[in-house]
């Protein structure tokens, strides 16, 4: 009984060490990046990222503040970094507005939820007051250079993965072999 209690205590201590350390034992997500191309096709219009929120600035006493960032070149990116355990999901909403440069009125607006996928906007132009665009999305995860990769080294990464699988399979097979050998020896 004493031994059982001691072992339970040891197991609990191990688990609490993990929990207290706050180690996230899950593959980490990379930041979500919104990128743009073809901004120059928006002649006479401006694409604006609208920030919506309460009291965006300390000296702003209005109950509801609206601010915007003009997206005026193709290098502009919007980065959303994962904020850990207490990440506020509402912070991931991205509002984009298409504004007429002359009148200053919003003619089109979009809302995207920035989670798990990075989005590249390919803007073709404006037609009938609507922005014409396509989006390409890619998973926002860290690319580990050991197993995952594209392009010229794709064959090397495939070979690496195969070596990992082969090593693991050999290890498990040998252990199973030892189990079987042990069982046969005991049964004789």
């Amino acid at each position: 009984m004493k031994r059982f209690l001691l072992l339970s205590l040891l197991l609990l201590a191990g688990l609490t060490i993990f929990a207290d350390a706050g180690i996230n034992i899950q593959r980490q997500h990379a930041r979500v990046i919104f990128s743009f191309s073809g901004i120059s096709n928006l002649q006479g219009y401006k694409l604006i990222q609208t920030h919506v929120g309460y009291y965006a600035k300390e000296d702003d006493k209005r109950p509801y503040a609206r601010l915007g960032t003009i997206i005026n070149d193709d290098d502009h990116t919007i980065n959303i970094q994962e904020g850990g355990k207490n990440w506020d999901e509402s912070d991931r909403d991205i509002y984009l507005s298409l504004v007429d440069s002359l009148t200053g009125k919003t003619v089109d607006s979009f809302e995207y939820f920035a989670k798990d996928y990075s989005i590249h906007f390919k803007i073709a132009g404006v037609k009938d007051g609507r922005m014409q665009y396509r989006t390409d999305s890619t998973r926002a995860v860290y690319q580990y250079l050991l197993l995952n990769g594209e392009g010229d080294n794709a064959a090397a990464f495939r070979r690496n993965r195969l070596i990992f699988i082969a090593c693991s399979a050999v290890g498990f097979m040998l252990l199973i072999g030892l189990f079987v050998r042990n069982k046969n020896k005991n049964s004789k």
Binding site: L146, L147, R161, I163, F164, I165, C167, S168, V170, G171, F172, L174, L175, L178
Partner: peptide
């Protein structure tokens, strides 16, 4: 054998 079996498996 445990290292050979588990380490690549966990990495994958």
């Amino acid at each position: 054998l445990l290292a050979l079996a588990e380490a690549p498996f966990l990495t994958l």
